[in-house]
Computed example of a mutant assay.
Amino acid sequence: MEEGSVETTRHLNHTDSEEVMSEVHLGCPPGFSGPHISYFTFSIPPVEATKQMISFDEDGDLILPRRNKLSTQSYTVTIQHSITSTIPCVGLQVWRAELVLSDFLLHKMFTSSELDGIVSLELGAGTGLVGVLLARVAKTVFITDHGNEILDNCAKNVELNSELINHRAIVYVRELDWMNPWPPRITMEESSFCKTKRYSWTLSEVEIAHEASLLVAADVIYSDGLTDAFFSTLERLMSLGSEKVLYLALEKRYNFSLDDLDVVANGYLHFRSYLQLEGDCEDLECGSMPRFVGKCIDITEIPQYVKEYDRGNDVEIWEIKYSKGKF
């Protein structure tokens, strides 16, 4: 991306009409309005010499490969986004946790086949960057968010990066409002009404989503009410169909609290109240809350494949599972 980063983040005390800017967008044209295009490059590590193909000559002697300088392949993801937005439209911007989660998933793609051929669902997708990257290896990707403006932008980013997407992958951009119950209202498969509801779900799509094994979300923790709605939706999604794991990336955001007379990350603390740490579940009885089990991942062990951003010190990635019965 052309931009650097700055410690300017959205805070809980912003009003819905106030314009906010992601820390990623420093360097964008000041006062620029309308969609902006940024280019993110990510590098695929070269194959190690020990993994090179072993071959033999006509006499059966081992052919030793020349020690050529290993080159690193790079790809560019094109993302349309806004430079500033109001709080309800923050999904139009690129946020740091979205880039950290991209690094995490790229690392899985490059080091294992764990994500090959999966069905995945991105919650609060924003620009859709994470979903686009997943579509390089996944069988089906649902990119979901709320509001036509954000969903139109997601669809545009899928279009802009069509050459990067696995040609066998199916990518759906769909409306998912956490304030409404899951599953969402269904449209008829062949109905002409469906054509006017571009981001509506069909019954077959809901059934496919229930079989998703991977859920992902980035930078969706910044409002207590939204966090409550998120976990309510998450419980419904994870209690139906196949077993699922959620990888959630977030950034701790600190505010001065008059109640505490200190700078605290209340939004983060509210998020943590939903989780039981992995390994501390033995004493919980069936029906106890919370039913979500989380493990914080050490992101210092994750290489930075997306080059054009500064990770900072307050981004975390959580692996979250849901207990349908007794832990």
Rank of each mutant, 00 (worst) to 15 (best):
E3L: 14
G4L: 12
V6N: 15
H14D: 09
E18K: 03
V20E: 09
S22A: 08
S22P: 06
S22G: 07
V24F: 01
P29K: 01
S33K: 15
G34D: 14
I37P: 13
S38F: 02
Y39K: 13
F40G: 05
S43I: 11
P45M: 00
P46A: 05
V47T: 12
V47G: 06
Q52D: 10
M53C: 05
M53I: 03
D61M: 04
D61I: 00
I63P: 04
P65K: 02
P65D: 04
K69H: 03
K69R: 00
T72L: 13
T72H: 06
Q73S: 04
S74G: 02
Y75K: 08
T78H: 06
I79E: 14
I83H: 08
S85Q: 03
V90P: 14
L92D: 10
L92Q: 13
W95L: 08
A97R: 10
A97M: 07
E98S: 15
L99D: 08
H107L: 01
M109Y: 03
S112Q: 11
S113N: 11
E114F: 00
G117I: 02
G124F: 01
G128R: 05
L129A: 02
G131H: 08
L133N: 05
L133W: 07
V141W: 00
V141A: 09
F142G: 07
F142L: 09
D145V: 00
N157L: 02
V158Q: 09
E159P: 02
E163N: 03
A169I: 00
A169V: 02
V173D: 01
R174G: 01
L176T: 06
M179H: 07
N180P: 01
W182G: 11
E189M: 11
E190V: 04
S192T: 09
F193S: 14
F193V: 15
Y199G: 15
S200D: 14
S200P: 09
W201V: 02
V206N: 13
I208D: 14
I208S: 13
A209K: 07
A212S: 15
V216Q: 07
A217Y: 01
D219Q: 04
V220A: 10
I221W: 02
I221G: 02
G225L: 05
D228F: 02
T233M: 08
E235G: 06
R236M: 13
M238R: 12
G241D: 08
Y247C: 08
E251F: 03
E251L: 03
L258D: 12
D259V: 00
D260F: 06
V263I: 10
F271C: 11
Y274K: 15
L275V: 09
G279N: 12
D283V: 12
D283L: 10
G287M: 09
S288A: 15
P290K: 06
R291K: 10
G294T: 04
C296E: 15
D298T: 03
I299S: 07
I299M: 08
T300S: 14
I302D: 11
Q304R: 14
Y305K: 10
V306R: 13
V306L: 09
K307R: 03
K307E: 06
R311S: 12
G312D: 10
E316W: 03
W318S: 10
W318H: 11
E319P: 10
K324T: 13
K324M: 12
